[in-house]
């Protein structure tokens, strides 16, 4: 059971710092209007120069170099292997089950839907049955297998625990790691930092506390 589960990958301290420093810059940009102009200017100057110097980079030496080929990078390789492992763990039993169902039950009609459907559903509900005039409401066994296959996720979760390998595909699609979209393996952190520095430079600062006294008085008066 534990073999099928994959632990989230650990980041090093420098990587955490790199990622969170970027988030800090984004926070500064989005929430800048809560700061007074002087402290915003001080922060902006600090962040922009730090970003441009590459102060927060996890790997300062690798700055400006092109990304290594993922095939030769052992860390990326490991990630891909993990993905493969997850996929295989799901594929193998399902291939077996499907072959078995196909061999024994092909051509069987196992149920009738209680509602009428348009003929477009024929290919979805009657795979493996070659009868053209059969009503669409009849469902063939192979189709029923496919329908249940995609509907069985909660059952898998119940039996294997929510972090099981059969679940990996959906997880990879929804991407678990919160920073991954921000700083994926294929993106150069240095470029991201420079980009963020530029964003900060051009930001127009408006202080939300400007005139807050009058707003407050106007609100209580009105």
């Amino acid at each position: 059971m534990t073999l099928l589960q994959t632990a989230p990958k650990k980041q090093t301290l420098a990587q955490i710092r790199q990622q969170r420093s970027l988030v800090r810059g984004i926070n500064l940009r989005t929430n800048a209007n809560t700061l007074s102009p002087s402290s915003f200017q001080a922060r902006k100057a600090y962040m922009v120069s730090a970003y441009q110097e590459g102060k927060f980079l996890a790997d300062p030496e690798g700055r400006g170099k092109p990304r290594p080929n993922p095939m030769s990078d052992p860390a990326a390789m490991e990630g891909m292997m993990g993905m493969m492992k997850g996929n295989m763990a799901m594929m193998v039993p399902q291939t077996l089950i499907m072959g078995w169902i196909n061999a024994f039950f092909s051509g069987f009609v196992i149920m009738k839907l209680p509602f009428p459907l348009t003929p477009q559903f024929k290919s979805m509900l009657q795979s493996g049955v070659g009868t053209r005039d059969l009503d669409v409401r009849w469902v063939s066994s192979l189709s029923w297998y496919f329908l249940t296959l995609f509907g069985l996720q909660p059952v898998y979760n119940f039996i294997l625990g929510s972090n099981n390998a059969a679940n990996q595909v959906t997880q990879q699609m929804g991407q678990v790691n919160p920073g991954a979209g921000l700083m994926g393996p294929e993106q150069d952190p240095d470029k991201l930092f420079l980009n963020e520095a530029e964003n900060l430079e051009v930001l127009e600062h408006r202080w939300i506390l400007d005139g807050v006294e009058d707003r407050l008085l106007a609100r209580t008066a009105g």
């Binding site: 809560t34 007074s36 939300i208 506390l209 807050v212 006294e213 407050l216 609100r219």
Partner: peptide, 10 residues
């Protein structure tokens, strides 16, 4: 200080 207190009340 005044502005920040006012903002917190706002």
């Amino acid at each position: 200080s005044l502005k920040n207190f006012a903002r917190s009340i706002e």
